[in-house]
Design a protein around this nucleic acid. Structure first.
Length: 466
RNA sequence: UCCGGAGUGGCUCAAUGGUAGAGCAAUCGGCUGUUAACCGAUUUGUUACAGGUUCGAGUCCUGUCUCCGGAGCCA
């Protein structure tokens, strides 16, 4: 007895010749009935955006049992013959010999219709939206990008490092951590009118990580080049199309890299991933280009073909001041660049990604290396058209005394970070790194406007359903 | 968090303070190797929630909630 195996629709569609006894399994996207005595089913199994057309003859033995159940959303197993299609729109199709219904989808209740839905509505049915063309494509591209990230770093000898999810250190500043506790929050232990965290699970106040960078530095200072790729949490009340409370971040950290090396790696990295997506997700990318953003592929190719513009913060301020543009927020050296300023640089001035570096010391975190001028730090942001900041990175301060002084200046408790400081005390070395918001990358590559639509289950303020 | 907009059949949206409607979907029928099929008919409502003004509120006012867009924070 031969064991008949299900073939993926992606593989079946690539066939050039007719073949008996194929098995396909998947969900019905649409059905068109012909009173000529057969139905056309569009079957999708997620292996590709493309459906395979299945012809179900109403004279089939099984038809009486299944006819009522062949509706949009139902899940089926089809056995039949793969044939060349006489109709337009597909080269092959399956002439069904037997149809098994795994699961019905009552048309009165099933919310996905064979028409366009708003992304807003689809967010309310996060458990069913992966069965749409758009979300299938997004998650396939997301998956390919994740794979590409590992591939990129492994080709370069980076070590994939797992940094902790629960931490007691706060890398960027207070007020943005999700607290982790096993204390009874309705009746916490009190000592001197404050909560006594010595009785908490870890014996101190802990939270979910906002970045694996500091821990990443620890291992870069031993293994040379490492990267992290994992979930990150920010309890900021951000309500924008570019922020999530839980998102995935990629953070490479490299010993012996200065800021120039860092920028070079960032550019190479972005280009590698764009090329990868275009090469391996052709059908999905074409779909985005057709339905989401007609200039997408052209724009990505342009990014691939051009070198990123590298300008200092001071140069950027100069350009903005001389631009003649009327900005809502004034441009002034020492202030953060506003979204509108970044957009001018990437979309109007250079029309490609721009790396701005050497930012004023006062507006950047304590761990960034201070330049000789004493006023700027070795920080860099990669800005891309439409989206803005996709990467933020820096060369790290490697001088023990300077780092100590900066922590003091910024009001950071050096005792808490003694281990971080000791990296500079024992065998310090120049090193650099950056962070890439994975969902922002997926947005950039797919053209999707809202970050809530490029992660399977988005977490945002007031939203943790599913 | 701030500014602006929105919340009405399953979905997308209409409705000058005066009888809540259309398209799509669904259902039924017709037609067809069909392709977001097509044609005809039918069904579907606590107008987000709580108050208030008014003879009368989907519409005006107050509060609350949620969503969307923009800003800040950032990745």
């Amino acid at each position: 007895m031969t064991i008949k195996k299900r073939e993926k629709i992606k593989d079946l569609l690539a066939q050039k010749e007719e073949r008996e006894n194929v098995i396909a399994k998947g969900w019905i996207r649409t059905k068109r009935d012909s009173k000529g005595g057969f139905s056309f089913l569009e079957l999708n199994d997620g292996s590709t955006i493309n459906n395979i057309q299945v012809i179900v003859d109403h004279s089939l033995e099984c038809y009486g049992d299944v006819s009522e159940k062949l509706t949009t959303g139902a899940c089926l197993s089809i056995e039949g013959k793969l044939t060349l299609s006489p109709g337009k729109g597909q080269s092959v199709e399956i002439q069904a010999k037997n149809v098994t219904v795994y699961g019905i989808a009552d048309t009165e209740e099933f919310p996905l219709q064979k028409k366009r839905h708003s992304f807003e509505f689809l967010r309310t049915i996060s458990h069913l939206r992966p069965r749409t063309n758009t979300f299938g494509s997004i998650m396939r591209v997301r998956n390919r990008l994740a794979y590409g990230i590992h591939q990129f770093f492994h080709e370069r000898g980076f070590v994939y490092l797992h940094t902790p999810i629960i931490t007691s250190s706060d890398c960027e500043g207070a007020g943005e951590l999700f607290q982790v506790t096993t204390l009874d929050i309705s009746n916490p232990p009190i000592e001197n009118k404050t909560i006594d965290y010595s009785q908490d699970f870890f014996g101190k106040k802990t939270g979910l990580t906002v970045s694996g960078q500091l821990e990443g530095e620890v291992y870069a200072m031993a293994l040379g080049e490492i990267y992290t790729f994992g979930p990150t949490f920010r309890a900021e009340n951000s309500n924008t199309s570019r922020h999530l409370a839980e998102f995935w971040m990629v953070e490479p950290e490299m010993a012996f890299y200065d800021l120039e090396d860092d920028m070079e790696l960032a550019e190479e990295f972005i280009k590698y991933l764009l090329k990868d997506a275009l090469e391996y997700c052709g059908d999905d990318m074409e779909f985005f280009n057709l339905r989401i953003d007609k200039t997408l592929i052209e724009r990505l190719r342009h990014v691939l073909d051009s070198s990123f513009e590298k300008i200092t913060y001071t140069e950027a301020v100069d350009i903005l001041l001389k631009s003649g543009e009327k900005f809502q927020y004034p441009v002034e050296w020492g202030e953060n660049l506003q979204s509108e300023h970044e957009r001018y640089l990437t979309e109007k001035k250079f029309k490609k990604p721009v790396i701005v570096f050497d930012y004023p010391e006062a507006i950047k975190p304590f761990y960034m290396k201070v330049n000789d001028d004493g006023k700027t730090v070795r920080a860099m942001d990669v800005l891309v058209p439409q989206l803005g900041e996709i990467i933020g990175g820096s060369q790290r301060e490697d001088n023990y005394q300077i780092l100590m002084d900066r922590m003091k200046e910024k009001g950071i408790d050096a005792d808490e970070y003694y281990w971080y400081l000791e990296l500079r005390k024992f065998g310090s070395a120049p090193h650099s790194g950056f962070g890439l918001g994975f969902e922002r990358l997926v947005q950039f590559v797919t053209g999707m406007e809202n970050i809530r639509d490029v992660i399977p289950f988005p977490r945002t303020p007031k939203q943790a359903g599913f």
